[in-house]
Design a binder for these strands. Structure first.
Lengths: 343, 343
DNA sequence: TTTAGCACTCTCACCTTGAGAGTGCTAAAA
DNA sequence: TTTTAGCACTCTCAAGGTGAGAGTGCTAAA
């Protein structure tokens, strides 16, 4: 499918106009709006051709044209201008990050908030997560009776806390000794190596090591870290979600962690850090997302810690701006992660 | 305002019927539906009286009656049957909690999920938070260069992690020594006591203690811990939120942390653990919640750690069931918190 | 005090209608 | 060959009209 320049122009204008108004775009109004140097009849002929290519669609015989999913895809793939974010927007965003508390959690929350506000859509950010769990540090804190709080720190800064129940009460001193022992012994070890050290430990140590191993295995098996969402309500103000049932289906994907993990796993997980993926109208697979598009990116340090960020909005979203924003925030997060978390 | 038994009955039935159908309730259909031993004319007279009391309202001259906010409030205050949850529902819920990972975060997430599913509405759960921050344990973990990961554990199990930047690189060994020293010295101390120990420390120790104090102050100042939400999309399926703008306003309160904190601070924070608060139609204060009711409870250990849980649904919600569910989940969480987190 | 009966009111679903916007086609102009 | 003016046609949408249905308040009798 090879489009003439004029066809590309018209497709682009129709998409712009449709994004602006959420209405079908007619030939005459398009010519008037953009002062095109051709008549509406010419535009109609081109529209007709674009409709044959299935890039445009007519809701009804005598309505204007609306871009199809294919049309958006062509637009995003070939026509969208990679404008980059305006400098002052960049500055505002960067500023916010360096203003915030120095804490991954805050950064991720902030990233979600920035994405949501900039794109006026729903956003998601997953915490950076390593494919391989490498032990860094263990802490055991007595709470009450046989209850102990276990804090496990992985290389890369992932932290897990968990209450464990020992078979008998143990003093804080003894716990500290064991924690220190394990911390020293296991630094930079993966699950396998740690398993092989099990024989060196006494009975209590073995119990704790077992829990530690279980926990690390669990972390390794999970495909993504904690998920932060923001701007869900932004989506509700879009006219295509006026009947809230449509909105419900779309937002449900974000809310239901397992669905979202599936979605991420089958798309952005295969993308390189720095790359952008745009999922338009659910790409036939995700029925609930028929009305939505998702712009996704991966951030972090490609070899160790990575996470995903994305924006979910109506299919009729301003792709250029959204893509720039997602790319920029991903870069900011990558920088922060590599600066502070790297091994 | 003193209602006769018959008036109470009719009010109750109208509310029940309205909750079921979301439609105005007429005299005739009410008599038929519930096989009342009186004629529709009698019911009409009583309805008229209830309307005078402003417990009912007519959307239009010749429509049926709809409960007013006042009507719901009377119902919740006087007529609602405190049924308690069915035994098997209780069992299902309890079971889920003991099945889950032994980890506050999981419990809170689960609580939110249970509330959302049981009530088919949106739910919120705040992490338990102590009014007074009491130090328990400090851990310092070298990451890279001058970057250090500080893990702060408070009495009661609140954990904060933060990256701090020291003025010069420090070895893990030295960090461990300092952390142990602080941990020993400050156990069970509040901010004030810790501040008085500052002079004992060397320069590096002072820096760290300052950050620690700042962090503890921050925790003490925040009114609530982490917030977990669930079931936002449930609300979208209610007919009163068909035009998504209504839904947007309501859900916005949940999404915007500061708004939600305000709301909690001005209501449930003043409630005792074990008590239930029902906020109907925003009580005149919260414009965004005109269409909603919130059922709130406080859980935890009254003297140390408390958190809030709640359900947000349409004003037309099944209060008896929702209240029972919220109360039950609050009790379960209280038990878990006092069992595992208490000092 | 309750109820049957009645006149009245209001909504809602349904239909019709005309304006408006858009289309495709054709024939003439460039 | 490409572009454009003109025209007949199509379809939506808002506005207005109509009747069925449900509900009400009032009155007079039980």
């Amino acid at each position: 499918m090879q489009l003439t320049d004029r066809q590309k122009l018209i497709l682009t204008l129709i998409i712009h106009e449709h994004i602006r108004t959420a209405q079908p775009v007619g030939s005459k109004s398009l010519v008037e709006k953009y002062n095109l140097a051709m008549s509406s009849a010419t535009v109609r002929n081109e529209m007709s051709a674009l409709t044959d290519y299935e890039l445009l669609r007519q809701p009804h015989t005598s309505a204007g044209r609306v871009p199809t999913e294919e049309g958006y895809r062509f637009f995003v793939g070939n026509l969208v201008q990679k404008s980059g974010l305006p400098t002052n927007t960049r500055r505002t965003i960067t500023h916010q990050f360096y203003q915030s508390r120095q804490d991954i959690e805050q950064w991720l929350r902030l990233a979600a908030s920035v994405l949501a506000n900039q794109s006026q859509a729903a956003s998601l950010v997953t915490a950076p997560h390593a494919e391989k769990a490498i032990f860094k540090h263990l802490e055991l804190i007595a709470t009450r009776g046989r209850q102990v709080l276990m804090v496990l720190v992985l290389m890369g800064g992932e932290i897990r806390q968990q209450f464990i129940s020992l078979s008998e009460p143990v003093s804080q001193d003894r716990l500290s000794v064991i924690a220190a022992q394990i911390s020293n012994m296991c630094t930079r070890c993966d699950v396998e190596k740690i398993s092989r050290m099990r024989f060196q430990m006494d009975s209590l140590g073995k119990d704790i090591l077992d829990i530690l191993i279980a926990e690390m295995t669990l972390i390794e098996e999970s495909t993504t870290g904690e998920i932060y969402l923001d701007g869900m309500t932004n989506v509700l103000s879009e006219p295509e979600f006026a009947e809230s049932d449509e909105a419900r289906q779309a937002l449900h994907i974000l809310e239901e962690r397992s669905l979202l993990e599936n979605l991420l796993a089958s798309t952005v997980m295969n993308t390189d850090v720095g790359g952008i993926q745009v999922l338009i109208g659910g790409e036939g697979t995700w029925q609930e997302l028929r009305q939505c598009s998702i712009v996704l990116a991966r951030y972090g340090d490609p070899n160790t810690l990575t996470g995903s960020i994305g924006v979910l909005g109506p299919i009729r979203m301003p792709y250029d701006r959204t893509i720039s924003t997602v790319r920029f925030v991903a870069n900011v997060l990558s920088d922060l992660v590599t600066e502070t978390l790297a091994v």
